[in-house]
């Protein structure tokens, strides 16, 4: 499958860029593009930001996920405390990042 030229992958690895994640996702949507976002390692703390649920709702189940192992490593309960806006199916592995690289025509790290 060729990468979708209208899809923007956002790989979130830092815990301090929520305003950029939201700003870029919103701007992409406004421009008619589709954001696809993966949160890993310490960026999973951003799931506790009050703005996370709206971001997750906007992206939809197929286009936003977090690393379940990272969530557990950071002390959260990946079974009993799934972040607001996500389902259990969005508690993923690094394979989601691989899919993001394959599917997205454009890509940014935050």
């Amino acid at each position: 499958m060729a990468a979708d030229p209208n899809k923007l992958g956002i790989f979130v690895t830092s815990p301090q860029n929520m305003r950029h994640v939201i700003g870029i996702a919103d701007a992409a949507e406004k421009a008619g593009k589709t954001p696809m976002i993966f949160f890993t390692y310490k960026s999973v703390h951003l799931t506790k930001d009050a703005r996370f649920k709206a971001l997750a709702d906007k992206c939809g189940e197929e286009n936003i996920a977090i690393c379940a192992d990272s969530y557990t490593c950071e002390g959260y309960d990946s079974a009993a405390d799934i972040p607001a806006g996500l389902s259990g199916k969005q508690m993923r592995t690094q394979a989601f990042h691989g899919a993001l690289l394959d599917e997205c025509g454009k890509y940014i790290v935050l």
Binding site: T40, Y41, K42, Q94, L101
Partner: peptide, 18 residues
């Protein structure tokens, strides 16, 4: 020093044939 998890992330891509 706190972000050597990047090695694990790289391994995750390696097992996806990258």
């Amino acid at each position: 020093r706190m972000y050597n998890d990047g090695v694990r992330s790289g391994l995750g891509l390696a097992v996806e044939n990258h």
